[in-house]
Amino acid sequence: GAPPLPPYSAGGREVTMKKGDILTLLNSTNKDWWKVEVNDRQGFVPAAYVKKLDSGTGKELVLALYDYQEK
C-alpha cells in the first residue's frame, strides 16, 4: 500500500494524480510535499508518492507510484 501521508505543510493547493502518471516537477525544496504540474494544473503531491525520472530533456519529471486524491 501507499506510505503514510506526511502532515500537510506545503501551503498551496494539492493536485490529484493516478498511479503511472508522468508529472513535471516544479519544486522539490519541501522534503514532504513536491510541487508538480499535471494537465496544466499546478499543485502539491506527497514526495513519497512519486519517483524522479531521468528525462534527458532538462525538464524534471516524476512518476506517480500511487493514486493521490487532493483533499
Rank of each mutant, 00 (worst) to 15 (best):
K59F: 11
A64S: 05
T29S: 14
Y8I: 11
L26A: 03
G12W: 10
D32Q: 08
R41F: 10
T29I: 08
N30F: 05
L23Y: 10
E60G: 08
D40I: 04
K52I: 11
L61H: 06
D21H: 04
M17D: 00
P4V: 08
Y68D: 00
K71F: 14
Q69W: 11
L61F: 12
V50C: 11
A2I: 12
T57K: 10
A10C: 12
T29R: 11
K19G: 04
K18F: 10
W34E: 01
L23G: 10
G20L: 02
L63H: 04
E14W: 07
F44K: 02
N27T: 06
A48K: 10
S55T: 15
W34N: 01
G56A: 13
Y68H: 05
D21Q: 14
A2G: 09
T16W: 13
T57L: 14
A2H: 10
P6E: 03
A10Y: 06
A47G: 04
L26S: 02
Q69E: 11
A47Y: 02
Y49Q: 02
K31L: 11
D67G: 07
P46N: 01
R13Q: 13
Y49V: 03
Y68K: 02
V36N: 00
V50S: 01
K19D: 02
A48F: 04
E14F: 10
G43P: 01
E70Y: 08
G56C: 10
T29L: 09
E70V: 12
Y68V: 02
N30D: 12
P46W: 03
Y68M: 03
P3V: 06
A2L: 13
Y8N: 11
K52Y: 09
E60I: 15
I22P: 01
W34D: 00
V38G: 09
P3F: 05
A10H: 15
S28G: 10
T24E: 09
K52H: 08
L5G: 04
G12F: 11
E37W: 07
A48I: 10
L63K: 06
F44W: 14
V38S: 13
G11M: 07
L25H: 01
T24M: 10
K52T: 07
S28I: 06
T57G: 15
L61S: 07
S9P: 15
A48N: 13
W33R: 01
E60N: 15
Y49G: 01
A64C: 08
E14L: 11
L61I: 09
L5N: 06
P7Q: 11
N27H: 05
P6W: 03
A47E: 02
D54Q: 12
E14A: 14
L65N: 03
D54W: 14
Y68N: 01
V62Y: 07
K18M: 09
M17T: 03
K52V: 12
K51Y: 06
T16K: 06
A48C: 07
N30M: 08
T57I: 11
L5S: 07
K59M: 11
L53F: 12
K19N: 03
M17K: 00
V50Y: 01
G12N: 06
G11W: 04
Y8V: 12
Q42I: 15
Q42K: 10
P7Y: 04
K19R: 12
K59I: 14
Y66M: 05
V62C: 09
D32S: 07
A47F: 02
D21W: 12
E70G: 15
I22H: 04
V50A: 03
P3E: 05
A64P: 00
I22C: 04
R13D: 13
D54V: 14
V15R: 02
V50K: 00
S55E: 10
S55W: 15
V50W: 00
P46R: 02
P46L: 03
T16C: 09
L53M: 09
P6V: 02
R41T: 13
A64Q: 00
V36L: 03
D67Q: 03
D40Y: 10
T16G: 13
D67I: 01
L65C: 05
V36R: 00
G20F: 04
G20Q: 02
V15Y: 05
K35N: 06
W33G: 01
K51A: 10
P3N: 05
Y8W: 11
K18C: 08
P3R: 05
G20Y: 03
G1Q: 12
V62G: 13
M17A: 03
G56K: 12
W33M: 02
K71C: 12
D54K: 10
I22N: 02
P46H: 01
K59T: 12
G12Y: 09
L23C: 08
V15T: 06
K59A: 13
K35V: 13
T57D: 15
A2F: 09
A64F: 01
E70C: 08
V38D: 09
L26G: 01
L61A: 06
A10R: 06
Y68Q: 01
T24N: 08
N30H: 09
L63G: 02
L23M: 15
P7M: 08
A47V: 04
V50Q: 00
L53I: 14
D32T: 06
D54P: 15
G1S: 12
D40G: 15
W34Q: 01
V62D: 00
G11H: 14
G1K: 11
T29A: 12
V50M: 05
R13W: 08
E37P: 01
Q42T: 11
L23F: 08
K71P: 11
V38E: 04
T16A: 11
K59Q: 14
E70M: 09
E14C: 11
Y8R: 10
L23Q: 01
S55Y: 12
A2R: 08
N27C: 09
L63E: 11
Q69A: 13
P4A: 11
L23P: 01
K35I: 14
D21F: 04
Y49T: 03
K18N: 07
K52N: 06
Q42H: 09
V45P: 01
T29Q: 13
V45H: 00
T16V: 06
L53C: 07
A2C: 08
W33D: 00
S9A: 14
Q42F: 07
S9D: 10
A48G: 07
L25Y: 02
F44L: 05
L53R: 02
K52W: 07
M17C: 05
K52R: 13
G20A: 02
V38C: 08
L65D: 01
V45A: 03
G12A: 07
L25K: 01
L63S: 04
F44M: 06
R41Q: 12
Y66K: 05
V45S: 00
S9T: 09
I22R: 04
K31T: 08
Q69L: 12
Y49N: 02
K18V: 07
Q42R: 12
D54E: 14
Y8M: 12
R41S: 11
N30E: 06
D40H: 15
P3W: 05
E60H: 11
G43K: 02
D40W: 08
K51H: 09
L63Y: 08
D32F: 15
A10I: 12
L25T: 01
K59Y: 11
W34G: 00
L65V: 06
I22S: 02
D32E: 11
Y66H: 07
V15H: 05
E37G: 07
W34K: 00
S9G: 13
D32W: 15
K35C: 12
G1N: 13
V62S: 02
Q69S: 14
D40A: 08
A47L: 01
T57A: 13
G56M: 14
T16M: 07
G12K: 06
R41E: 13
P4Q: 09
L65T: 03
Q69P: 15
E70I: 09
P6T: 02
L23W: 03
N30L: 07
G56Q: 12
Y49W: 08
N27S: 12
L26C: 05
K31F: 08
